[in-house]
Design a protein around this nucleic acid. Structure first.
Lengths: 342, 342
DNA sequence: GTAAGCAGTGTAATCGATTACAGTCTATCG
DNA sequence: CGATAGACTGTAATCGATTACACTGCTTAC
């Protein structure tokens, strides 16, 4: 292994000078700088990252906790995180938690053992274990999309999910829909509550009931959409419009509806959430809410780095703008009241 | 910061004993073990990861170089990588290269500076810069899906892309197709060459020509599929079947074909490659080749760790099995020879 | 001509661990 | 009873850097 000592011997200077040449080139003479640089090249020397980290106490790494890697929406966020981190000289440790607490504990522990300087949580849970909870209070941590549960004071970057829920609801109500179904994801998350509250807000203002039995599903997967549709259609009052709480669910829902011979949106309208790449290329293209996922990832990193550097935050909540994308999976409600069978 | 010294004072033992209690619990007395563990708990102590790494010379991290995070196929691979790494006590540093050499250099450099112990490359390029090339010879590196270019001797895990190309071609030829189009991704990659060679192999055996002008596209994106279809349909002889060299391209191609009023597969058959999650839920579901992406990621890690530990490899090429999924986007070729307009 | 100041470099302490080596204590054996 | 082995524990060197402090030599000011 080529270390700083070897280089210093090669260059005929002290290790201190080598270190200075590399970190603060302007404090050494041009002569020595040249000597040192030549030795560095000759030896193929790279400072040992770990050693530098021990000394400086900074790892220049961030951990990102993701419940599920395959969701393209998360990946957009992570892309933003990765870019911004890179630009600030940080690197990203990937923590696929699969939503399991033990995994979260493990990855979150990285910050406590100086393996990472900060933590970005994409899920809604507090990722530390009970016994680490106290230590964790001072850990730089930010959540994106979700809000960390409990009355913790961690900053977060999220969408105005309530308003987005309202926007979608208004959109469908204005098309004359009165019978709704909802296929939900993780029920325990704040996202779920906010989106549903937004939808419910509009519906109750309009005097439209949303029965508990018409809210089905509990995971953000394509299969949930399929099962959700089956469940909704087995109820006595069939919906003419289905809110899917993310695009994957909507993909499954649309697939199953078409398989059963329903036409979208003529028989039933479907909406999603997130605007993943494919949703614009489905048949029909999916009406959904666009989230600036990439930008949200970037913002999370900027906030986190401020936290790490102990710079003051202007605000601890960052609400990003959404955009309702009215595409062709939603349309006017059927006129007649009886489409009990096709 | 709570360090080992503080704990040792708290427990009334030496730092050596603390270290031993944590790493080799069986060499200390039960008494001291208890004392130490109590102090560890009381102080909320976690060994400093960086310090351990400096001493042991191992970072227990792997870098993964990905050209594009949003491709769900890559994410499946990374999921496998992440899982396997975790199980072996390694963590994953994510390197989104965007296909740029400078980025690759940066991330690959992590191994040279002891920030990571090994490297997994998902792209086909040799990720080190010219001046690092020599040092890089001894770096533990594995490529997945792709093969690192140049006559380097790095192990890789891949599909039999040639055979998979042949399988798809056989499938379409057996349906009576004779006029083909290909929408390709990255032309420089080995994958591209192998898949195309497989297709070409079958076609030439069958005496079916594949003109250069019917091979279009050069990136693995949905938009490539759209543009590719436009380009193919503007040629004088229109294809009755289109090979898309990945599923994203196929998604775009199907979308554009349907937009132009073509029926799939009645007018034109479409095939993909990779079997990403959504491809089974498209309308019609996409005929494609399934790659065991998750498993490939796992295998890559296993091989890499063997390399890191300098254990001998049984073989340096790992060819994974594929599976042709015949779904509904492909079917019999139209009988008539003239479907010049619809 | 001497003191002060400054630029450039070296010496050695330090970061937080691990671990070779040495030392202490107890148990066992002849 | 003394020697010896074995079980624990402590001391201090070490990993590969960074950096406070000290030192040297030169310039400038009085």
């Amino acid at each position: 292994m080529t270390n700083i000592k070897k280089v210093s011997e090669l260059a005929g200077v002290s290790t201190a000078t080598v270190s200075r040449t590399l970190k603060m080139p302007d404090v050494v003479t041009e002569q020595t700088r040249e000597k040192v640089m030549k030795a560095v090249k000759a030896a193929g020397y790279r400072p040992n990252w770990m050693a530098t980290s021990v000394k400086t106490g900074k790892s220049n790494s961030l951990v990102v906790l993701v419940p599920n890697l395959v969701n393209p929406f998360f990946m957009r966020i992570i892309e933003g995180i990765e870019q911004a981190a890179q630009e600030h000289g940080y690197s990203v440790l990937l923590g696929d938690t699969q939503g399991k607490a033990s995994r979260e504990n493990d990855y979150a522990g990285m910050v406590l053992s100086n393996r990472a300087d900060g933590l970005i949580q994409l899920d809604h849970s507090f990722p530390f274990s009970e016994q680490d909870a106290e230590l964790a209070e001072s850990v730089p941590m930010v959540s994106v999309c979700e809000r960390i549960e409990g009355n913790r004071k961690f900053p977060y970057v999220e969408l105005d999910n309530y308003a987005a829920g309202r926007a979608l609801a208004h959109h469908l109500v204005s098309y004359g829909h009165t019978k709704f179904g909802v296929i939900a994801g993780q029920r325990t998350s704040q996202i779920h509550r906010d989106r549903l509250a937004g939808i419910n807000g509009v519906l109750s203002e309009e005097g439209i009931p949303l029965l508990e039995q018409n809210i089905v599903g509990q995971s953000y997967a394509i299969e949930t959409g399929i099962e959700g549709v089956r469940e909704l259609l087995s109820n006595e009052t069939k919906p003419t419009a289905i809110f899917c709480l993310n695009d994957d669910i909507a993909i499954g829902a649309m697939h199953e509806l078409k398989r059963q011979g329903f036409s979208i949106p003529d028989d039933i309208s479907v909406t999603g959430f997130d605007n993943v790449k494919v949703s614009g290329y489905l048949d029909p293209p999916l009406t959904t809410v666009d989230q600036p996922a990439y930008e949200m990832g970037r913002r999370a990193v900027e906030i986190l780095i401020k936290k790490i550097r102990q710079e003051p935050l202007r605000r601890s909540r960052e609400i990003m703008p959404f955009q309702l994308l009215e595409r062709q999976s939603s349309g006017p409600a059927r006129n007649s009241a009886d489409e009990s069978d096709i």
